[in-house]
Simulated scan of single mutants.
Amino acid sequence: MSRLTDAMITGGYARDVDRPMLDLQHGGQNGWANNLLEWHNNKAHVSTPMHCILLEAPRMFKSFPDPQKWIGSLKAMFELHAYAIEGLNAELKVDTDTHDVGGAGEKQHEVTNVTRETSTPKFTFIEKYGRPIQTLLDYWIRYGLQDPDTKFALLGTMNNSEVKDMLADWYSATCLFIVPDPLHRSVDKAWLTTNMFPTSTGQIVGKRDLKTGQEILTLDIEFPGISQYGLGVSRFAQTILDKVRTTHADPFMRPAFATTVSPDVEAVRGGYQAGLEKMGTEAVTHLGS
């Protein structure tokens, strides 16, 4: 079945866009009748999952014992443990005002302002055994932001001569948020967000109710920051995405996570193999013998 050779647009409003994009001049299906010769160009945009890449960790983590443990845990928390990330937004809003045109009630609209929606990243985590996420956030808040009792950041209580101020780089992180195309090759959207820090540890409560089951702890944590969105960010995100090799990254083809029978299980008599072999040895007769 043929398809248009010029299905993707070049030039025009796509001149600064690196991702594949359909040409609006083809594929329209809502005129006098549909146009099945160009049905390929009627492909809808379907969202793809966004990925978070940690670019910079708070400087204070370098002042802690085992700094790589702190930084590695933060990287894993952002990139591997968040099962939902939302709050990134680049929608443009146009404010208008009106004035009368004639006496019939018609209004002329004038543009008074254009703004971009504020991005406030929010991460959703399923807390792990022992509450490691809340523990990390607790230290981040008390040592980097403010201790609830002293009203000072406890980083100042550490005997570290390198800490001479409490500017935002000491307690905030920088992340890159990438939405790739369906082939995971081109950047569809990207946000670069700095000055990120947690606004909560999530609820830390205790209760007793023998009539109901116990609960899995779900954390919804906002990390407000300053975000940049635009061509420069997309070009930077593309350089990051180009380093991610997806060749043969097929989960179906990965090796089995277990390749042996444990010795304690193998030492037990009976089971599928023993029963099968026992039947073979006890057979009255066999044509192949």
Rank of each mutant, 00 (worst) to 15 (best):
H184P: 03
H51Q: 13
L145T: 06
Y83A: 09
C175L: 11
Y171R: 01
H109G: 01
S161G: 05
T115H: 08
T118K: 14
M77P: 02
H99G: 15
Q68K: 09
G103M: 15
S73V: 09
R116W: 00
L145K: 02
V111K: 12
R116S: 08
K107F: 07
V101M: 14
L137C: 01
F125N: 03
K189C: 14
Q134D: 06
K122A: 13
D165K: 05
W70C: 03
G87L: 03
D169L: 04
S161K: 10
A44I: 15
V101P: 03
D188Y: 04
E91S: 02
Y83F: 12
P58S: 01
K75M: 05
K151C: 06
D97K: 09
P58M: 03
Y171T: 03
T150L: 02
Y83G: 09
H45Q: 12
V187K: 06
D97E: 13
Y83M: 11
P148V: 04
V46K: 11
L137T: 05
E56I: 01
Q146P: 04
M50N: 14
A168P: 05
H81M: 12
P67Q: 02
M158R: 03
I126R: 15
E162M: 09
A173I: 03
I85M: 12
L137P: 00
A44K: 15
N89A: 12
I133N: 02
S186G: 00
F78W: 02
E117A: 08
V163C: 05
Q108K: 12
P182Q: 09
L145R: 00
Y129G: 15
R131G: 04
F152M: 08
M50E: 15
D100E: 13
A90V: 12
T174M: 10
V94T: 14
K69E: 02
A153E: 01
K164M: 09
M50V: 10
M77T: 05
L167S: 08
L80G: 03
V101G: 14
L74N: 06
I85G: 07
D95E: 11
D169W: 04
P121S: 04
L167V: 09
Y129I: 14
K128F: 14
F125H: 02
M166T: 04
K107S: 08
M60I: 00
E106A: 15
D138V: 13
L54G: 05
H81K: 13
L80P: 07
F177M: 05
P148T: 07
M158K: 07
